[in-house]
Amino acid sequence: MVETTTIPGSGAAGGNGTEAAKNHFSKAVEEALAGAKALGTEAQNRAGEYREKLYEKKDDLAGDAKVRTDEYKEKAFSFADQGKAQASGALASLSQLITDNAGVLDEKVGAKYGDYARGAARSVQDVATRLDEKSLDELGEDAVEFVRQSPALALGIAAAAGYLIGRAFK
């Protein structure tokens, strides 16, 4: 005779084995759901932390960019002021050169041409003086107004200046 032993919950005796397996499976599913929910919550918390760090970093970078932009703007205005001063100085030197050579023109070709040269020197000196007296903003406004009043002349001057600059760098 063969003896059989029943394992509790195995289903060999009475139909409780199926119920026990269902209970065990249900508990495993509940634990898995709870674990997934905990992982989801953990993921949301970490995502929130990373989002906060990202926003802080973004704000820091934006602040740094603004500071650097302001620094570069100041440098650009400084260079523009230096260029304006150099241009004014060059015009004043040109005016002086024309004035110095006006006497030679008087002797070589006549007083009439020397007077033209002196008039041109005064005009160049006036431009240099006006350039010194005006700020960069005022010069920009004057340029915009000139382009509005004479767009064709402004385009011609820009083309000529571009050609001369191109020739200078060749």
Rank of each mutant, 00 (worst) to 15 (best):
K112I: 08
A32R: 14
Q44R: 13
G9S: 05
S93T: 06
A28H: 09
K22N: 03
A102L: 05
D81V: 12
E3Q: 07
G89H: 05
A76R: 07
N16S: 11
A85N: 05
V2M: 09
D126L: 06
T69H: 02
D132C: 04
E133W: 03
K73M: 12
E74S: 15
K53W: 11
A36V: 04
L153N: 02
A152M: 09
A121S: 15
S123N: 08
A92M: 11
G35V: 07
L164D: 08
T4G: 06
V127I: 05
A65Q: 03
A92S: 12
G14Q: 14
Y72I: 06
P8Y: 11
I98K: 02
A85W: 00
G89E: 12
K84W: 04
S123W: 03
G48M: 12
L39M: 09
V29P: 04
G114I: 03
I157V: 09
V29K: 07
A43Y: 04
K170Q: 14
N45W: 01
E42D: 15
L94G: 06
A128W: 00
K27E: 15
Q96C: 12
E19M: 14
K84S: 01
R122Q: 15
R167I: 04
E133V: 00
G15P: 09
L136G: 07
S10A: 09
D59A: 01
D142M: 02
K53A: 11
K53Y: 11
A13T: 10
S26L: 15
K84P: 02
E49V: 15
A128D: 00
G119W: 12
A62V: 14
E141G: 02
P8S: 05
Q149K: 10
V29C: 13
K134R: 13
V127T: 04
A47E: 13
G83H: 01
S26C: 06
G15N: 03
E3H: 10
D100G: 13
A28D: 13
A160E: 14
S95K: 02
D132Q: 07
G40P: 04
K37R: 11
D100K: 13
A152N: 13
Y55M: 09
P151E: 06
K66L: 15
